[in-house]
Structure formats: structure tokens, C-alpha cells
Amino acid sequence: MDTLPQLTDAPRGSRVAWIYGGVWGVLARGFLVPEEPPVLPSLRGEPIRSFRPAPNFLRYLLYPSLIGVAIACLVLLAVSVGVCVAAPALGLPLLAVSLPVIVFWVAIVVLAVHLRYDTTWYVLSDRSLRIRRGIWIIRETTITFENVQNVTVRQGPLQRVFGIADVLVETAGGGGGVGQHQAGASPAHQGLVEGIADAPAIRDLLTAKMRTSKSAGLGDDAASTPRTPTAWTAEHIAALREILDAARLLSA
């Protein structure tokens, strides 16, 4: 969980990493995509952790899309070869064009998946959660655990293979998803922490907070209700009985 901020596992020093770094430089300087992880203000000195999804989330995103690309490429190649056999004059240029298209396509898919992974951040403190997501539209959602109504852990079969899960944190108020088509709006009343390895840990943290919380999470102020000293022990009771005895003795 203590994942340090770092770019994904593109081989260091290689040409690929260099190109990827260049793309990041353009995004960071030209398109003002923040490179540093988001933070939460630490109000009472509580520890703040910023982390990315688990590394397997990258593979979970990458492999299915690469398989999809591979199938499409096979179809494309088969068509090209078929045309080649039927009419070489037409097929050879087609093959010459389709090969770069395939290479370019694979590169775009890999790049997009890596960028999505690298721009997804979660920040966790004892009391709240912040999620940052997006490249063109950067959305940051902040939710305090005090307001959380329910926590859902989701894991599909493929996610189980990769050992990751999604945690959906929902606050009160309906209409999640309806707001998605509105421009610039995040899904309402929810925060999605996707692709993390220790989803049960986050779920346990949240459910523990929900159990100890005195309020319903609807803006009601638990601290304002008068708190009687319920912490009296057997010693208090014994002392009170002795006082009662002494008082009886006095009044007798």
C-alpha cells in the first residue's frame, strides 16, 4: 500500500521510456497535467498516503486491449494476405500500409493505458479519501468517511486473476450515474477506488469508521449532542454507595 510515486514500469533508460517521458513532458508543460500526486491537508497531524492502483491494474487494462488489437490485426493481415494472393499489385501496397497502422495502433493503446494508470491517484487519511482521475478533464473527488453510507467491493473474474478489486464508496443522495452525461460532472455521490490490491483493508477501514460514527452521515452533528459521562466504572458505583450510606447515617 505504501506505493511511492513513480512512473510505471517502462524500462528505465530505454528508448520507450524516453518517448514516454517526452509524452509526459508535453502533457505536464503544455496541457498542465499535474505530475505530483494530490495531497489532503492534514488537519490534526494524521498521516496522509498517496498511492496509485496496484501494478496489476496496468496489466489488467493492458492485456485485454492488446488481445483485442491482436485479433483485429489478424483480421487485417488475413485480408491483406488474401488480397495479396488474389491481386499482388493491389495487395502489396495494402500490406505495406497496414503494417505501420498496426504498429501505431499498438503504440497508442499502450500509451493510453499507461497514461490512464499514471494519472490515477488515491489519497487516504484516517478520515477522508481523495481521488484524482483523468487527463483531458481532471476530476478530483473528496469524501470524508463520516459521510459514507455504504461501501461496495467489486471484483470480476479477470480482476480476480490479477488479484485486484474495485472499492465503490457512496455517500447519501441518489442519482449516481445520471449526472455523468452532464459536461464536467463526476459521478455524483460516489468515489471509485479501482484496481487496488488490498481492497479489504480499505473496506475494513471504512466500515470501522462507519460503525464507530455516532451520526447517520447526513450532516447531523454528533459532537453537538450532550455527552453524558457514561464511562463510570464499578469503582464509581462503590463510592456512590458509600456516600449513600454515610448520608443515611447522617439523616437517621
Binding site: I137, I138, E140, T141, T142, I143, N147, G173, G184, G191
Partner: peptide
């Protein structure tokens, strides 16, 4: 309940 900070390009 929740705060969303959104910035497009």
C-alpha cells in the same frame, strides 16, 4: 457530502 474539483484543458 462530497467535493468535486474538475478542471478541463
Amino acid at each position: 457530502q462530497d467535493i468535486h474539483l474538475t478542471r478541463n484543458l
